[in-house]
Amino acid sequence: MLLQAKDVNYYYQDGESRRYILKDTNAQFDKGKFYAILGQSGSGKTTFLSLLSALDSPKSGSILFDNVDIKQLGYEKYRRNKIGIIFQSYNLIPTLTAVENVLVPMSITENEIPADRLTVAYNLLDYIGIVKSKADRYVNKLSGGEQQRVAIARALATNVELILADEPTGNLDEEMEQEIVDIFKKLAHEHNKCVIVVTHSNEIAEQADQILTLKKGLLTVHE
């Protein structure tokens, strides 16, 4: 068990009352598996993922990584050394080229990175489907699909075991979507990573090893 959500609660304060987004949520995630979190818009998928990726903290309960509370580990440290995050809106740095974007987390992490970082970055991009000529372009001169590939390469750059993605194909057409999903499957099954993808697409969910659904603050795990 790589990652565990334990009795996690999250709510927004609405005047006097609390509006719960997540209620006593429990979940477990393992290496080598591809997970899909399904739910309608506004059901709290992004909220849940942001707790798993320590971009926000739960109101109560805890997130454990390798059985250690990530709060104890330190959120910042957890983010830079343990996880790779992929956003729906890519969140790349526009003034940097694709390869420079991949180099950024390498300079932030404390994980061991091969000495020749530039070569590693180009190779990663190439593996994800971005050739050298495109790797040297500013990211806003790449298509949406290409940008999301750069974002995936960036998430992989620090050599982490856990990949978290929030609707990574939300802005892409179906063909591109399938290519990205294939990458995730490959990462889970061939590279033994734990991949958690938030989506509202049933086609993606069907390809996952395990589906979790979120509805009215309750997370249900489907075997």
């Binding site: 910042e76 830079r80 050394n81 995050i85 969140n91 740095i93 526009p94 950024v104 987390p105 932030i108």
Partner: peptide, 14 residues
Amino acid sequence: KHELGIYLSLGEKR
């Protein structure tokens, strides 16, 4: 601001 958020999300020290 957004860019700063990205760096923070990548675990950069404040």
